[in-house]
Simulated scan of single mutants.
Amino acid sequence: MSATDINRAVARRFYDEVVSQGKLEVLDEIVADDAHDHATPSGSGLRSGRAGFVEHVTWLRGAVEGVTATVTDTVAEGDRVVVYWTIDGVQRGEVFGVPPTGRRFTGQSISTITFRDGRIVDYAVLPDRLGIVAQLTA
């Protein structure tokens, strides 16, 4: 298996095992000690280490009941994987400034994940905020 294939597999594990299944312990295996998560929900910005990933996933799983993250495509080159994925679930907590509605929504996101030695070292996500907010406030 090439390094690129390993990175793609790790990216898929992040969405399947960590986001969808809530297996936070997997982060110890797939995220480097000095990793950065640019997607912390508190608006605190860049978080260093696994704590940012734990914060991000814990918030997401609490705000979106039954959350599933499905990878629809990946593009990989060198140490970077771009992941196209879909999120689905029922809003139970604040999401993008919208108070809990109890509505089911589906959204598209694109993430850029950088790897070192098969572990995540940098994570950024660009969700379709407008599409999600429109579903929650319609």
Rank of each mutant, 00 (worst) to 15 (best):
S2P: 02
S2I: 01
T4C: 10
T4V: 15
R8T: 07
A9F: 04
A9C: 01
V10N: 09
R12W: 03
R12N: 06
R13A: 12
F14A: 04
Y15E: 05
E17W: 07
V18S: 07
V18A: 02
V18F: 04
V19R: 06
S20A: 06
G22A: 08
G22E: 08
G22S: 08
K23A: 07
K23V: 10
L24C: 14
D28M: 04
D34G: 12
A35Q: 05
H36I: 00
D37T: 00
T40A: 15
L46C: 04
G49H: 06
G52V: 10
F53V: 14
T58R: 11
T58C: 09
L60G: 08
L60V: 04
E65K: 15
G66Q: 04
G66T: 02
V67N: 11
T68D: 05
T68I: 02
T74S: 05
R80H: 13
V81E: 12
W85G: 04
I87W: 09
D88Q: 15
G93Y: 11
E94R: 04
F96G: 07
P100L: 10
P100Y: 13
G102V: 09
G102M: 08
R104L: 01
F105V: 00
G107K: 03
I110T: 14
I110K: 06
S111I: 01
S111T: 00
I120L: 11
I120F: 10
V125P: 03
D128A: 05
I132K: 10
V133E: 13
A138P: 05
